[in-house]
Design a protein around this nucleic acid. Structure first.
Lengths: 185, 185
DNA sequence: ACCTGAACACCGTTCAAGT
DNA sequence: ACCTGAACACCGTTCAAGT
């Protein structure tokens, strides 16, 4: 005798994302997710293979959100302004969603990684901009340099690693400006 | 009636470091550390407050090792060559000690953070070099830009984030060269 | 003074039994 | 077809009892 479904994969991922944002990856237990969607923990295994699978689905969601954020920021005709806008939007997003940032950019076990095409899509806006600045031949290398710097900077800022004084906002501006000049043809 | 000590804090930290390198932070269980030093798990709590405390002590060790590595690399009179050497030594160290790298540079809970003076000491060689390249006034900002880039690059390399093709070695060289020029006065 | 077994509160996950 | 309680193998940690 069939029982009607009491939850859905969408509800589970949404609840997981909310718990991630609120309490981080360590707070994301199967028990809390189950409680949030109104079932018992074992029922979750009808929709996700295991916790890693759920983490991966949440990471996909987060990647899509970030792609949207970066694309919306990259609206200028001037590539220098665009790079500045993309970097600023990235930082604002990371500072308001620190746990989501870490989920995307800290070490991620193989089976929690986002889909490759989501990865490519999130890089598109930046690649267009670096192609204009550095030329097509150096676009990928230039984009990697910028992303590495931004990831590293935000990771350190979120980790509280800037403990030698100074103004962090100014250090970010300094970095954007120098990086832009560094990759320009 | 006193019982002779069967282990020591040094042995515990050393065993913990070995387990970290071999199996990562998730593999670093109190049970495995205890087995490695020949006691039962509860005995560890005579030497460390809890697991976080042990992780912090291991991180201190790792930071000292990295400082030594970077200092040994920074031997040139030419600051450009020095920056290149420091970056290269950092990358080589990170690629041979990926788990230690993550322990230092991924998100770290407050009570697992290394001692502030170890932090300052590990930055010294780089700060000397960026002061020569960018001038005293911009030395800190320049160092932050370089460290952010290097941390971000290595974090992405270790995470397998460079999935859009291209040569990773070449991207690192490209980055070092561009960064050097970017921060030069 | 140090070490230990037993116990506790938590995990993720499986599975037989219920509807 | 989905949901559940019970169970299992793990965690970190505490503590009374042993030497």
């Amino acid at each position: 005798m069939p029982t009607p479904a009491r939850t859905s994969i969408q509800a589970i991922v949404a609840a997981g994302r909310a718990i991630l944002d609120a309490d981080g990856l360590d707070g994301l237990t199967m028990s809390r997710v189950a409680a949030a969607v109104g079932v018992r923990p074992p029922s979750l295994y009808k929709r996700v293979r295991d916790r890693s699978d759920l983490v991966r689905l949440i990471a996909n969601d987060v990647a899509s959100e970030l792609t949207l954020t970066l694309d919306s920021a990259a609206t200028s005709a001037d590539p220098r302004a665009n790079l500045r806008a993309i970097a600023g939007a990235f930082r604002a997003w990371a500072l308001t969603h620190p746990e989501a940032f870490h989920l995307l950019f800290d070490r991620v076990p193989e089976h929690e990684r986002i889909d490759p095409d989501l990865n490519a899509r999130s890089a598109a806006a930046l690649l267009r901009t670096t192609a204009e600045l550095a030329g097509e031949a150096d676009a990928l290398e230039a984009a990697r340099t910028v992303v590495a710097w931004a990831n590293g900077f935000l990771g350190m800022e979120l980790a509280g690693a800037f403990r030698l004084g100074g103004n962090v906002d100014r250090a970010f501006e300094y970095g954007v400006e120098r990086l832009t000049r560094a990759i320009e043809r």
